[in-house]
């Protein structure tokens, strides 16, 4: 058995709508690729063991901890960071971002990129989430400033805007 044939090629990704091929070690963490290779510092480095959610990004539309995912696991996939959440060229925030801003859904803001991504993912498959669904969705995002009251208000406001009421 020739093992070289199984070696992973350079990693091809689509990051915030941009096609790219990156020459990195296949086991390199997605978080390091985004922050160090691509300069996308929205996803935050914090616990680095998948507990806090500050680094969450969308991988093919699903929230994933970028500190846990390795480069080879993201090959050929669409990555969306908080920098790519707003519609390009429109110059406006996404309704979820705007709701966090207007409802005081953050204080220090360190967890906010992960929160915004998580809420985007939640509303994409559950447009009108109940309290339990919100709590389950947010269970992997830790905020040590707000007590979650402002975050929950932001989600409810984003739901209203999104659903036109």
């Amino acid at each position: 058995m020739s093992l070289d044939q199984y070696a992973a090629p350079a990693v091809h990704l689509m990051v915030n709508g941009q096609d790219m091929t990156i020459d990195v070690a296949p086991s390199k963490r997605l978080l390091a690729i985004l922050r160090e290779e691509l300069g996308l510092t929205g996803p935050k480095r914090s616990c680095e063991i998948g507990r806090c959610g500050a680094c969450i990004v969308l991988v093919d539309g699903a929230p994933i901890n970028a500190c846990l995912a390795m480069a080879y696991q993201c090959a050929g996939k669409h990555i969306t960071t908080v920098e790519g959440v707003a519609q390009e060229g429109e110059g406006e925030l996404d309704p979820v971002q705007r709701a966090f801003l207007e409802e005081g859904g953050f204080q220090c803001g360190y967890c906010t990129p992960g929160m915004v991504i998580t809420v985007k993912a939640l509303l994409s498959h559950t447009p009108d989430p109940n309290e339990d669904e919100i709590e389950e969705a947010l269970s992997g995002n830790i905020c040590r400033c707000t007590g979650y009251g402002g975050i929950k208000r932001a989600i409810k406001q984003a739901v209203k805007w999104r659903n036109g009421y």
Partner: peptide
């Protein structure tokens, strides 16, 4: 499974 970790971990 619902009680394991959080959605972002369960996706991986």
């Amino acid at each position: 499974v619902r009680n394991i970790a959080a959605p972002s971990v369960r996706n991986l």
